[in-house]
Simulated scan of single mutants.
Amino acid sequence: MPEISPAIGIGELARRAGCKPETVRYYERIGLVGDASRTVGGQRRYGEEAVRRLTFIRHARDFGFSVDAVRELLAMSDQPDMPCQEVDAIAKHHLEEIEARLQRLSALRDELRRMVSQCAGGKVESCRIIEVLGDHQLCISDQAHGGAHDLG
C-alpha cells in the first residue's frame, strides 16, 4: 500500500510545482486547481494530487498553452480511457500558432536589421529608423506589420 503523505501548505505546494503561492491562488480562483481543504485556523492544505495537477498546469503554461487549452487538457487527462485525438488536435493547433508567430518574429527581426543597417548615425531628422517607423510603405515585409503586439 502506498504511503500517504501528509497534507502540505500552499508555500510547499508552490515550491514543489515551481511557482509562487499567488499563482496557486490564481489557479484556484479560475478553477484549474480545486479548492484546498482548510485547517481549523483556515490554512489551505493540499495533497499529492494537487502537486501533480499544478505541475501539469505549470508545464503546459511553460509550453505556451492558453488557460482555456490547459483547462481542456486537464479535463481530458481526468479521463484516461478516452482517445487522445482531441489532445492531439489542441497540440497541433498550438504548434500552428507558434509557427505563425515565429514567421512574424522572423520578418520583424529582418525588418529591424535592415532599418538599423541603413541608419547613418546622423541626426534624428535624417534617421532611417524614424523614417521607416513613420511610413509602413518603406518596409519590405507586410508580416513585419503584424508586429510584436500580435505575438504574445
Rank of each mutant, 00 (worst) to 15 (best):
A89K: 04
I90S: 07
D78N: 10
V70R: 01
L95A: 13
Q85L: 05
V87E: 09
L73K: 08
C84A: 04
V132N: 09
I90N: 05
P83V: 08
R109A: 08
A120R: 07
A100G: 05
V132K: 01
L105H: 04
R128I: 03
C84Y: 04
E96C: 00
M82W: 07
V87I: 11
L112N: 14
S77V: 01
G64N: 15
Q118P: 00
A69Q: 06
S66H: 09
K92N: 04
M115G: 02
C119D: 15
V67A: 12
I90G: 03
L74C: 10
C84W: 01
V67N: 12
E131L: 08
R114N: 10
K123Q: 15
E72P: 03
M115Y: 03
K92F: 00
Q103Y: 13
A69P: 01
L74P: 06
L133H: 11
C84R: 08
R71T: 08
E72L: 00
V124L: 11
K123M: 09
S106L: 09
V132R: 10
L105M: 04
D78L: 15
A107F: 10
V116W: 01
R113H: 07
D81H: 06
R71L: 06
E96R: 09
I90D: 14
L112R: 12
A100W: 03
I129F: 07
V87A: 09
D110I: 07
V70E: 06
D78M: 05
V67T: 11
Q79S: 08
E99R: 15
E96Y: 05
D68E: 15
L95R: 09
